[in-house]
Design a protein around this nucleic acid. Structure first.
Lengths: 116, 116
DNA sequence: TTTAAATATGCCTTTACAGTTATATTCCAT
DNA sequence: ATGGAATATAACTGTAAAGGCATATTTAAA
């Protein structure tokens, strides 16, 4: 129960695949930060940062903790677990293929024969 | 020696963050395929597939094996190792933070005091 | 109860990229 | 040599998303 590992999500990957958002994530690695602090450190405009944070939030990469006037943004761990699992399973599949064949060239040769 | 693990590459993530390209990658999980085979199975036009393969190739996600007329595309394993390492290191950092603090709320309170 | 700070959001412009069509290139078979 | 299959690529179009600017909203402080 609860062992559900959701497949990797394309829009989540897209959320990570943007330089400023990646910079935000790297910043948040050291702990939660407010919008203003992020904007200062990355020298981005406040609305700009807010928008990127919205994308990250919509994709479950960060969560918000309102504290009076400010809003602390913090990384969620689940997306990273999902990504790790995904990448690992790929490598497993690729290793398995290597075990099953002497060489992938051999498979190519088989295909070639079949199509003669 | 040789233990160099290159940092994660944003444009590589971008290459993965597109539905058709992800579909191509999932196809290639079962072994190398030609452009035409990919186009058939995914019901995409040939130029369309060629372009996506170029993006994947430029980002080191696939490699090509010319075989006469055809070109077999195959997954490379390195990108997946890099991604896994990246995701793992993130989780380690996040766990470490949890160890260092009773709760991240406490940290917020500290910050609040500092700014009084 | 004003004032100022922190943040979110809407509108706008520009750029990047997915997807289509047409064509060039390469290789095999006849 | 010629024709056809497989692939790459160039030119083009449409759309989505980044980034900037102005403004609305919320909350603390004076």
């Amino acid at each position: 129960m609860s062992g559900k590992i959701p497949g990797i999500n394309i829009s989540m990957l897209g959320a990570l695949a943007e330089p400023n958002r990646m910079a935000i994530i790297e910043l948040l690695r050291n702990g939660p930060l407010t919008v203003g602090e992020i904007a200062n450190r990355l020298e981005l405009s406040q609305p700009h940062v807010s928008k990127h944070l919205k994308v990250l939030s919509d994709n479950g990469i960060v969560k918000v903790k309102p504290e009076a006037n400010r809003r602390y943004y913090k990384l969620r761990s689940e997306p990273f677990r999902v990504i790790e699992y995904w990448a690992t399973s790929f490598q497993k599949d690729m290793e398995r293929k290597l075990d099953n064949l002497d060489d992938y060239v051999q498979e190519l040769q088989n295909k070639q024969k079949r199509n003669k």
